[in-house]
């Protein structure tokens, strides 16, 4: 018989003891250790997940902040740039205006100076010219010249046209005061008589004629009554010449300033 029943019973008991022993010393500690390790790993993983989430949140927050900061900086930069541009334009404008006004002032000053200078020059020149002319004519003037002048005056008186003559006549007729004849030098008596006769012939009627000497006429003759005057003198000529020269000189600086301004604009 291959089966020994005592051994069978003993082996059953042995096996049950073995089961208990292995449960006690092998399975339970090993499974406990594995469970503990799994728990630790799960905890570590959960912790890592939590940290990761936190880190992601922090990263997102940081990125948001960064973006906001960038935007703010860009906005500030663009604002500053705009302001600087505006300021620059304004400053340039102001500088241009200032320079324009300065240039205008300077030109004005230049023109005034030029005008003053030219005026002084022309005045001096004119004065000199007139002084020379007056001196020359005064030197030349004399009794003979006066005679010639009286002759010229008489001829002119006769040659007056009708309208002028009528005006003269009425003016002299209306006046009650004596007719005044002024000359630069004292006329000799024959000349005086000739003039008196000529006047009487021309104007008609009786009248008193009074002769007077006036050196400021330079050379010439002048008859006058209340408000009317008939004259021929070198002083008149000189005065009209002086007026003409003055008008010419005043016209000239204007033209010069115009060309000057053009040149300045090209220069700027």
């Amino acid at each position: 018989m291959l089966i020994d029943w005592f051994t069978v019973i003993a082996q059953v008991i042995n096996f049950l003891i073995l089961v208990w022993l292995l449960k006690r010393f092998l399975y339970r500690p090993i499974l406990d250790a594995i469970d503990a390790r799994e728990k630790r790993i799960a905890l570590a993983l959960a912790d890592a997940d939590a940290k990761k989430t936190e880190a992601e949140q922090e990263r997102d927050a940081f990125q948001h902040k960064n973006e906001a900061f960038d935007q703010q900086r860009a906005a500030l930069l663009s604002q500053a740039t705009d302001e600087a541009k505006t300021e620059r334009l304004w400053l340039l404008d102001a500088a241009r205006q200032e320079s324009d006004s300065l240039r205008a002032k300077r030109q004005e000053a230049l023109i005034i100076e030029q005008q003053n200078l030219s005026e002084t020059l022309t005045r001096r020149a004119r004065e000199e010219v007139f002084a020379i002319a007056r001196k020359a004519l005064a030197d030349l003037a004399g009794a003979t010249l006066e005679e010639r002048m009286a002759d010229v005056f008489l001829r002119r008186l006769r040659e007056l046209d009708d309208a002028a003559m009528a005006g003269l006549k009425s003016a002299f007729a209306a006046s009650s005061s004596p007719l005044l004849v002024r000359t630069a030098f004292t006329l000799p008596p024959p000349q005086r008589a000739a003039i008196e006769t000529a006047l009487k012939e021309t104007l008609g009627g009786e009248m008193q004629v009074q002769f007077e000497t006036a050196p400021d006429l330079v050379s010439g003759i002048e008859i006058s009554t209340d408000g009317h005057k008939l004259a021929w003198s070198i002083a008149d000529y000189l005065a009209s010449l002086g007026n003409g020269v003055d008008a010419l000189l005043k016209a000239q600086p204007k033209a010069e300033t115009k060309t000057g301004q053009n040149a300045n604009e090209h220069g700027a």
Binding site: D4, T7, A10, Q11, L16
Partner: peptide
């Protein structure tokens, strides 16, 4: 011990 029919029988009975 598994070479004994008694042991294998014991295990089978278990």
């Amino acid at each position: 011990p598994t070479g004994s029919l008694s042991t294998t029988a014991a295990l089978a009975i278990c």
